[in-house]
Simulated assay, not measured.
Amino acid sequence: MSRAAETPDGARVPTPEEILALGHVPLLASFFRRVHNDMPEPLREVFAEHGLTARHGAVLTQLVAAQPASVSQLAQRLHVSLSTASGLVGDLSRAGLVTRHEDPGNRRRTLVSMPQRHRPLFEEFVAARAAPLLRAMDRLSPRDRAGFVAGLTEWAREVEGQDDDGPDC
């Protein structure tokens, strides 16, 4: 097996096929830039009024997927420091988008959840944002879908590892 070409700093040079695939990545930027435009108006107003960012949205997405969660669980899932996660939760709590309460199983632990009144609005937003990806994945075979999910997951881990304080989008 021949060794892949490397740059002077040791990074692997992508193959021509990989370069073609990587050409799609910048096209996704517009999808991420229009996140606020895709938000339901009441949610967009809360985000604007309280200066909330995509990182706050990432916390809410985690709570829609599996709630309640402790602040340390959120920090771990988002690959951010505990203090960053705590600050994000505090901002969301002041905005009224999350509640904090004592864990009945461990009184020293605080759990974070999304109030039921906000859940349908945020679920609608997540579904709308996920629709293009889910349609694309539906066209893949189960094997290709599993490979895509594995590749995307590893890419996200690699990118997150470059920024100790986690993702911005």
Rank of each mutant, 00 (worst) to 15 (best):
G151Y: 11
T15L: 15
P104F: 00
D168M: 11
H36C: 10
Q116H: 05
G10R: 07
D9G: 12
R94A: 13
P26E: 09
A48S: 15
E6P: 04
L63P: 04
A65V: 07
A95Q: 05
G23K: 09
S93D: 10
T153M: 07
M1K: 12
T53N: 15
L92Y: 01
D91S: 13
R77S: 05
T99W: 04
D163F: 08
V59W: 02
L43D: 02
R34F: 03
G10Y: 09
L88S: 03
L74N: 00
L88R: 02
F122K: 07
G10W: 08
C169P: 08
T84F: 02
M114H: 01
V64E: 04
D138E: 11
R94F: 03
D165Y: 06
G57P: 01
S30V: 13
G161Q: 09
E17D: 11
L140D: 13
A146K: 11
A127C: 02
E18Q: 09
L97C: 09
H24R: 07
A150L: 08
T7I: 04
S2T: 11
V149S: 07
W155P: 03
A65Q: 06
L74C: 04
L52R: 00
P42W: 05
D164K: 06
G105L: 12
S113E: 14
P8F: 08
L63I: 12
D103G: 05
E160W: 02
A4L: 13
D103Q: 04
T110Y: 00
R119I: 06
L82T: 07
A21M: 08
G51V: 11
R119C: 03
S72V: 07
T61Q: 10
R129M: 08
E123L: 11
V59P: 00
G10Q: 10
A75E: 03
P132M: 01
L133I: 06
R129L: 08
P104M: 07
R109Y: 05
R119N: 04
S83K: 10
